[in-house]
């Protein structure tokens, strides 16, 4: 049976208990939320392991090998260890701000999954403002960064928090504009509509020359910066800032930042796969397999970046966004508009 069939069956089972419709919806959505939380935790654990393996093999090492087959149990052990770690709250911090920062970081990463299409029909709620909602929610990350940086009462955290916020703010605009170029073509903000408008491989927005690749490359660069990954990982530059905004965090609070980071990495790849590579569409295999294959391929590209490019300097980083990416993405948006109007590649 298809996965959607199972969900439909469970939903009908819930309805047949005779509860009021609102309550049925709330229970169904709450269980969906818990399930997605579980899926995200597994994905994050897998990504941590995978990142270690990819890094190791790029550097001609093996990475974790001792715990299970190619060390697959390593991250599970790490997670259990983090759960048992003492949670130290320094006496000088601003307690409420310090406490809520990791919560906001994770919730902002988590809420996006309301409208990410995992497969054909595998979407919690197909919001008609889909991609706009995703962009709006991910922006909340900035607040958590500033809260963590300021609330920690630590110099490294302050510098790291300020840098992260400035970076995320700067790369937000090129990212939004490159997404807009796709929306001009799709004519809808709903993630499902965007996927359905690229039913065949030649319809993928990546292959609509010349606007598609330009939009994708500005998107992937901005997304790398948004998730604070190398070569844009200045906020966490270990050599100068120790760990950046999360230097004072330990135990589960640190784990939440860590989890949010990997979930965000998966999110930007999922959006990239949905907007430019046809989302769940593909032959033979079930739709969710295609979605995961495309998303993990993009995640791999992000990891590949990490071991290919050296870290940028902070002024280069800011100037690259405002003086290069932003004008390019705006020019690309106008180009996309013109292509749509003239009917070029508009099948």
């Amino acid at each position: 049976m298809e996965i959607t069939g199972i969900f439909k069956y469970l939903y009908e089972l819930l309805q047949s208990t005779g509860l009021p419709q609102v309550l049925v919806d709330i229970i169904a959505l709450a269980s969906a939320a818990v399930m997605i939380f579980g899926v995200l935790a597994v994905i994050a654990l897998f990504l941590v392991w995978w990142e270690r393996k990819v890094s190791a093999h790029i550097q001609q090492r093996f990475g974790p090998m001792r715990t299970g087959w190619h060390g697959w149990r390593q991250t599970i052990a790490d997670a259990v260890k983090l759960l048992q770690k003492e949670d130290i709250t320094p006496s000088t911090v601003d307690r409420p701000v310090f406490f809520w920062a990791p919560v906001i970081a994770f919730v902002a990463a988590f809420m996006v999954y309301v409208t990410i299409p995992f497969g054909d029909g595998l979407i919690v709620s197909d919001l008609n403002i889909g991609i706009l909602f995703i962009i709006a929610i991910t922006t909340f990350t900035i607040i958590s960064l500033l809260m963590a940086g300021w609330g920690s009462n630590n110099k490294y955290a302050l510098l790291g928090g300020m840098r992260s916020a400035a970076q995320v703010v700067s790369y937000e605009v090129p990212m939004v504009v490159s997404v807009l170029a796709v929306i001009v073509f799709a004519g809808s903000l709903s993630m499902v509509d965007i996927v359905q408008s690229q039913a065949k491989i030649y319809k993928w927005y990546f292959f609509r020359l010349p606007f598609g690749p330009i939009a994708f490359f500005t998107y992937i660069i901005a997304a790398t910066a948004e998730t604070n990954r190398t070569p844009f990982d200045l906020p966490e530059a270990e050599q100068e800032l120790v760990a950046g905004f999360n230097v004072e965090y330990s135990g589960m609070k640190f784990a939440m930042f860590f989890l949010a980071e990997f979930v965000n990495m998966f999110t930007v790849s999922a959006i990239g796969a949905t907007l430019f590579f046809g989302g769940w569409q593909g032959p033979l295999l079930p739709s969710w397999v295609w979605f995961l294959v495309k998303t993990f391929a993009l995640v791999f590209v992000l990891m590949w970046f990490r071991w290919t490019y050296p870290r940028l300097r902070v002024d280069q980083l800011m100037e690259f966004s405002w003086k290069f990416l932003l004008p390019v993405s705006f020019a690309n948006l106008i180009l996309a508009g013109w292509m749509k109007y003239s009917g070029w590649f508009n099948w």
Partner: peptide, 12 residues
């Protein structure tokens, strides 16, 4: 549709 957003906020 937006009930899901509210539920996900509280569930998160």
């Amino acid at each position: 549709q937006y009930l899901a957003v509210l539920i996900f906020l509280f569930a998160g």
